[in-house]
């Protein structure tokens, strides 16, 4: 009997102490903080290169999940800006539109991190030289065959981010996407 009671108490303590190392934390608002969500963020900006595929615009290197503040500062005044509150949760998703592309951010702690870079026209190209209007063949020539097809997109994954080519006949859109929010 004593053993059973002790077992029950131990179970209670276990519950309170936490049930595993890979747990996610549900904060006071009921919102998840996914493990690694902020950990994957680098201190981006002009000085940073490299995790996953990156986009460079007028000397500013942009990588997904990086701190957006230095990037936005380096890019200068956007052509337009929009912010969208998510349903229920605090913090804003922000969209900065520049010539040829838009930069999307998501809130993480007290920072905004880059969630996506979306090409809007063919005035910009990837660091590897692909732009809207290029052919599928060119994409494969540049990035190879190690990709997946998802919902009409050709997706190249690298270091936890995705470079997506949306294909109609040719490349209709290009997006650098974070996978943190998936």
């Amino acid at each position: 009997m004593k053993k059973l009671t002790a077992l029950l108490m131990a179970a209670s303590l276990l519950i309170l102490a936490g049930c595993g190392n890979d747990e996610k934390v549900m904060d006071g608002s009921g919102q998840n903080s996914e493990a690694g969500a902020s950990g994957s963020a680098g201190s981006a900006g002009t000085v940073q290169g490299g995790k996953g595929y990156v986009f460079t615009y007028k000397g500013t290197t942009i990588q997904v999940d990086a701190d957006a503040a230095p990037i936005v500062e380096a890019l200068g005044e956007p052509a337009s800006y929009y912010e969208a509150a998510s349903c229920a949760f605090e913090g804003l998703d922000k969209i900065y539109s520049y010539s040829g592309f838009e930069l999307n951010t998501y809130p993480s702690g007290d920072k905004d991190l880059v969630s996506a870079v979306v090409f809007r026209d063919d005035s910009v190209s990837t660091a590897e030289g692909v732009c809207i209007g290029d052919t599928l063949e060119k994409v494969k020539q540049v990035y190879g065959d190690d990709c997946t097809e998802e919902d009409g997109m050709l997706v190249y994954e690298k270091d936890g981010m995705k470079l997506c080519f949306i294909l109609k006949e040719d490349v209709a859109a290009i997006e650098y996407r974070s996978t943190v929010l998936e």
Binding site: S80, S97, V118, D151, M153, I166, L167, A173, E175
Partner: peptide, 12 residues
């Protein structure tokens, strides 16, 4: 409502 962005192009 100002500067509302248009939708991104979707694959499907």
């Amino acid at each position: 409502a100002e500067n509302v962005p248009t939708g991104r192009i979707l694959g499907d």
